[in-house]
Amino acid sequence: MQATFAPTDEVRESTGMSGAALPPGRRGPLARREERLAFAMLTPVLLALFALGLYPAITTVWYSLQSGGYQGINTSYAGFANYIRLFHDPLFWSSLRFSLLFSIITVSGQMILGTALALFANAKFPGRWVLRAAILFPWAIPTATNSVIWAYMFNYQYGLFNSILIHLHVITPATTINWLGGTTSATVLIYIIAIWKANSLVALLVLAGLQSIPDEIYEAARVDGATYFQTLWRVTLPLLRPTLIVALIVRIIESLQAFDIISAFTNGSPGTSTQNLGLYIYSEISNGDFGYSSTIATVVMVLTVAFIFFYLRTLTRSASAR
């Protein structure tokens, strides 16, 4: 357990928490009062999370040690059989590979584009409300219909994009592009749509972060003769670090759990080449195999934790190198 906790210090450090606990013996009355206040403020959240979050978490881990039965009924203890099965399951490895690549590429894309969008929307010019609306729109479309609409636009027969290309005389009606039917094109489109859909969240967070940076800091940088990109790199981004890290963590969690954005778009096709772990969990649940789906879900959880730590470590390292 100690090993698990070590990296959380980085969370603390990176978000600037000064939570180094003093040994209880040396705490003054003031510190104890502060601690009482802290626990009073935390209690509602912890109660809520324990009431609703604890049981599903335990259930999932517990089912991952069960096999047989149907929809979680009449299962029996199987030790680590499900994990061994995972290890020998090529579909698990290909889904894992897709999930990892999806997470790395889309989260990077969302961070870069979202930050750029926010910097842009933060600039003062007439009509910038349009940009603020542009930040909100992709994200406000329900995911369930968003993917259906995108799949409609990329439809092989009556899709918008093929029609545009036909009108531009790039292709003919006989040579329409089978966007969703090719492994590479389907994969790239999933990346693009996922980036497009969620850069909003990063942009919103960064925008709020930018508003808290005082103008004087930019003024000082300007007086020093810094160019825009120097200011951005040396002043703005370091000040945004806490916000960026939070955006990163939020996006990593959601990217690794991605499900409906892909299910309504390609449903993992062609074949299983765009199947991620989220889709695999769903198909195992609908096959009634709670044991195996819970095992994959547990792996996703572990993976998420590992990813967050990896990102944080890289970030804190590059920050200290600078």
Binding site: G53, P56, A57, T60, I253, F259, I281, A297, M301, V305
Partner: peptide, 9 residues
């Protein structure tokens, strides 16, 4: 951690 299990599960 309580948020890290996929909603499906």
């Amino acid at each position: 951690a309580l948020s890290l299990f996929p909603p499906l599960a």
